[in-house]
């Protein structure tokens, strides 16, 4: 029989490698794959734009967002100096939208980050250890799952009283169970695969198996899911503000603005829709970017 081992290894290497095939680093290949994904690039730009405009709101805002004026109430887009018109108290809408982005984005991102850390950790532990630990953690999560998430958020922040911090706490609490479940499912799938046993057979301890092999395979799905939760979080935060539980007036917040402008919907519908448009653009951008990043970052695709 002719086996490969009888051929000179170097000759074989030359035969198969061909003319210098470039091997890219991980991030270089991610960037390469993103280069022609115009949709992701566009919405990535939007996300950056939204974040930058929130950060630099004090520099960008043409007027004071708290300055009301009785004569200039509910003016249309482009009226005098008001680029996007004015709200029901005559405040400049553009300035309020820019400042509102600061609160809305914080309430969208921060609860998701904390919930990912807490829920992800609990889920990986539950999935990896299994048995009674899994039972205990997952049944507690099921209790939270029994309520619709918005109802739960309303109940928690209603019990603790309004305000931004309490709103964020309740958002964090409602995002922990779904993230924990995603992490648990992904972990228990990975745990039974051969390479985990192979790692153990090569002497890896539990900690290094979890931190290298489990996290390496599980982090992708968890991060994808949590990035899609950012837009949900913005929406629920807006909902809480809308119900008067999150942000309190006169603070500018997209949800709260939507709530207060609602009464003027027959007088100037375009103005009323603007905070909604801001929420829509932000959440669509976050969703599509997380989708695009997922496919660009997965080495198996």
């Amino acid at each position: 029989m002719v086996s490969a081992s009888s051929v000179e290894p170097q000759a074989l290497a030359d035969m198969q490698s061909g003319p210098a095939l470039k091997v890219r680093g991980y991030w270089a290949s991610v960037a390469y794959r993103l280069r022609y994904d115009y949709l992701t690039l566009f919405f990535g730009g939007m996300v950056i734009l939204v974040i930058l405009s929130a950060i630099f709101a004090p520099l960008l805002a043409p007027m004071d967002p708290y300055q009301s004026s009785m004569i200039n109430r509910l003016k249309p887009i482009g009226y005098k100096d008001f680029l996007l018109g004015t709200d029901e108290l005559g405040r400049d809408l553009l300035s309020r939208l820019l400042y509102g982005g600061r609160i809305s984005l914080t309430m969208g991102v921060l609860p998701v980050v904390i919930a990912t850390l807490v829920g992800g950790t609990l889920g990986v532990i539950a999935g990896f250890v299994g048995g009674k630990v899994n039972m205990a953690i997952m049944r507690i999560m099921d209790v939270f799952y029994a309520f619709p998430s918005i109802l739960l958020a309303v109940a928690i922040s209603g019990a603790m009283g309004g305000g931004i911090v309490n709103g964020m706490v309740s958002l964090t609490l409602i995002f922990i169970p779904p993230l924990c479940r995603v992490a648990e499912t992904a972990t228990s799938q990975v745990r039974s695969l051969d390479f985990v046993e192979a790692a153990r057979a090569s002497g890896a301890g539990t900690f290094s198996i979890i931190s290298v092999h489990i996290l390496g395979n599980v982090l992708g799905p968890i991060l994808i899911y949590s990035s899609s939760l950012v837009s949900v979080s913005i929406l629920i935060a807006s909902g809480l503000s809308f119900l008067g539980l999150g942000v309190t007036p006169p603070e500018p917040d997209w949800g709260l603005m939507l709530n207060t402008l609602r009464q003027a919907i027959y007088i100037n519908p375009v103005i009323c829709a603007l905070p909604g448009v801001a929420i829509l653009i932000t959440s669509i951008s976050f969703n599509l970017v997380s989708d695009g990043l997922r496919s660009a970052m997965d080495v198996r695709l």
């Binding site: 695969l193 192979a198 057979a201 390496g216 080495v299």
Partner: peptide, 24 residues
């Protein structure tokens, strides 16, 4: 035990498809 595993004794698995970690 972890010195024994991989150091003194090591193992080759049946399925090379799943015995290597796909993300590294």
């Amino acid at each position: 035990l972890s010195d024994l595993r991989g150091g003194t004794v090591s193992m080759i698995f049946q399925e090379p498809m799943t015995a290597l970690d796909p993300v590294y």
